[in-house]
């Protein structure tokens, strides 16, 4: 994904504080306005590789059924397919989760919640786009309320196509995600911070009721 050419002048260096213009003056004091910074990998390479291996084998998925794809997550987590075998677990709170599954189409209203959840997750964090509708809109390409390309709003590490993707496809997707994490290719959280302005501009173009802080710590 080559985004640098689309990025209209990254002026992060000049930026000290987020504006949080969507909030009222009273609320602005309640929220953090620090600009997110990318995290550094461990300085020793073998430590980083070790941690990547650990991360790959302990994937905590945020239990957030954003769309119809959530219906295939139930068989995935239960006895027929049992993703627990591979260290995939559901966590009910974004603070503790490391994988966000965007299950199918996301309407604009849900996208706002997806962004909030994603920003509250602690890095390294990974995003799986599930279903064709996250890739290019799929069946809802002309719907006025669903976004078409998910990776314009949050960085996506892996897409699983299909409508619906079967649980086997999801398992294969998790395996592929593990491979990518082990290889150190999943740096979505850092990409998000680096291209912060581009992502925010895209998000604000779609979400018209922006009554939340610019970055949800």
């Amino acid at each position: 994904m080559n985004k640098q050419d689309k990025n209209p002048g990254n002026n992060r260096e000049n930026l000290i504080k987020l504006e949080n213009a969507g909030l009222t003056a009273e609320e602005q004091q309640l929220f953090c306005d620090a600009v997110p910074v990318p995290y550094e990998p461990y300085s020793l390479e073998f430590v980083e590789r070790f941690h990547n291996w650990i991360r790959a084998n302990s994937l905590w998925v945020l239990a957030f059924g954003t769309g119809c794809g959530a219906i295939e997550l139930n068989p995935l987590m239960t006895s027929r397919f049992d993703a627990n075998r591979f260290g995939v677990m559901m966590r009910p709170t974004p603070r503790q989760a490391s994988v966000l599954i965007v299950a199918g189409y996301s309407s604009v209203k849900t996208l706002k919640r997806i962004i909030r959840s994603y920003e509250q997750m602690q890095g390294p964090k990974f995003v799986i786009g599930l279903g064709i509708c996250t890739i290019n809109g799929g069946m809802y390409y002309d719907s006025y309320n669903t976004i078409n390309c998910l990776d314009r709003y949050i960085p996506v590490d892996l897409y699983i196509t299909g409508c619906m993707p079967r649980p086997e496809a999801l398992l294969a997707g998790f395996m592929e995600l593990k491979r990518k994490i082990k290889a150190g290719e999943c740096d979505g959280a850092n990409r998000y911070v680096k291209d912060f302005d581009w992502y925010k501009a895209n998000q604000k173009k779609v979400i018209k009721k922006w009554d939340m802080p610019d970055y949800n710590w």
Binding site: G137, Y141, D142, S143, T146
Partner: peptide, 16 residues
């Protein structure tokens, strides 16, 4: 016109 609205608001994926 929802198709036109979509074109203006949501980016199309190249190749679709």
């Amino acid at each position: 016109d929802t198709a036109k609205f979509c074109e203006d608001r949501f980016a199309k994926r190249d190749g679709r």
